Simulated assay, not measured.
Amino acid sequence: MKPSTNKLLFTVTDRIDDTEIGPRSVPLNLLGEFQKEVKEFLIGTTHDVDPKEVTVSIEDGSLAFVVSGFLVAASLLSDIEKLRTSHSLDHIDSKRAHVIERWQSASAQNPNRRYFVANKTTQLGFSVDSNSNYSRSDEIWVNVEKYLDGIVIDLGGKKDANVHLDVQGKILKISASRNLLAEEEKNRLYRPSIIRVTAEENLVTGDLRNYQLLSFETNCPTYDDDEFRRMVEKGTRAWSDVPDNWLEELRGGSA
C-alpha cells in the first residue's frame, strides 16, 4: 500500500508600488524569505518532513506555493488545525511558532501583507495579517534535574567540553566540565548511557534547555517490587496516627 501524501498551500499577498505581487513580479528578498519560512514551517524542530521529498509549484495570483510529495506528518497537520482554531502558540512546534511570529510582525508593519496556509484538499487553514493576535503565554523557566537515557555519539571538544546524546533520534548537546569527562573511566562513546543533568524547563511547554552534565550513572535504574512494598509499609506506619479528615482540619474545618 502506498503511503498517504498530502498537499499544502502557502500564500503571501502584498502590494509593491501599488502592484499586486505574483509569480511574474515579486521582490527577490521576499521570495527568498518566504521560501525559507515555508521550509522551516514544514520541517519544524522534529524534522517531520524530509525536504528532499517535497515538490513545490507556484500558482497564479498572489505568490502561492503548493507543497506536495511528502508523507503526511501528523504533528504538522495538527499544528495547522490548532492555528486555525486558536490564537495560542503555546502548544505548537516552537519553530513553527517562530515563523508565525515573524509573519505577524511583517504584517503589522505592512497592512498589505497577508499570509495564508491551508490543506489544499479541504481548503481549511489559517491566515496571518495586520489584525492577527497570535501570542504565547509568558514563558516561565525553572531549574530542574533530569535523567536522560540515550546513546553518546560524541564527547569532549577542543574549546567547550560537551556531550552529544542521541535520545530517540533527537541530538542533545550537554555542557560538561573537562575534569568530569577526564575522570570518567568507562568508554561511553557509541554506547547506551543514562546521565544525570541539570536543565531549565518551560512550565508551559515542557521544553528543556541549557543542559549541564552532573554525572554518568553506573547502573540502570530498575523497578524492585520488594523495595516498593517496604516503602509503602513504612509510609503507612508513619501516617497511622494522622486522622482521615486532616485536610479538612488544615483548611479550617468542615462546613
Rank of each mutant, 00 (worst) to 15 (best):
S4R: 15
T5H: 10
L9F: 02
T11V: 01
D14P: 08
D14W: 10
R15Q: 03
D18L: 03
T19H: 12
T19C: 01
E20P: 09
G22L: 06
P23N: 01
V26L: 07
E33V: 04
K36L: 09
E37G: 03
V38G: 04
E40P: 02
T45Q: 10
T45V: 11
T46F: 14
H47W: 13
D48Q: 12
D50L: 07
D50A: 09
T55Y: 05
V56E: 10
I58H: 01
G61M: 10
F65Y: 12
G69N: 04
A74V: 14
A74K: 15
L76V: 03
E81W: 03
R84W: 08
S88Y: 12
S94G: 08
R96A: 08
R96F: 10
H98M: 11
H98W: 05
R102V: 02
S107E: 02
A108S: 12
A108D: 04
Q109C: 08
R114H: 08
F116T: 03
K120L: 11
T121W: 06
T121A: 11
L124R: 15
S127P: 08
S127G: 13
V128A: 03
V128K: 08
D129K: 09
D129P: 07
S137K: 15
S137F: 10
D138W: 07
W141N: 08
E145G: 05
Y147L: 14
Y147V: 12
L148Q: 07
L148S: 02
D154T: 01
D154C: 00
L155V: 02
G157E: 04
K158I: 03
N162Y: 14
V163C: 02
G169V: 06
L172F: 11
L172V: 07
K173V: 15
I174G: 05
I174R: 01
S177I: 10
K186V: 13
Y190S: 10
S193I: 04
I194F: 14
T198I: 05
E200V: 03
E200H: 07
E201C: 13
V204M: 14
V204Q: 11
Q212C: 06
L213K: 05
L214W: 00
S215P: 06
C220G: 02
Y223F: 14
D225S: 11
D226I: 08
E227N: 12
F228S: 03
M231C: 10
V232F: 07
E233T: 03
E233R: 11
S240E: 06
V242Q: 07
V242I: 07
V242K: 07
P243F: 03
P243I: 01
N245Y: 03
L247M: 10
E249T: 13
R251D: 14
R251P: 11
G252I: 04
G253I: 09
G253L: 12
G253W: 09
S254Y: 14
S254R: 14
S254D: 15
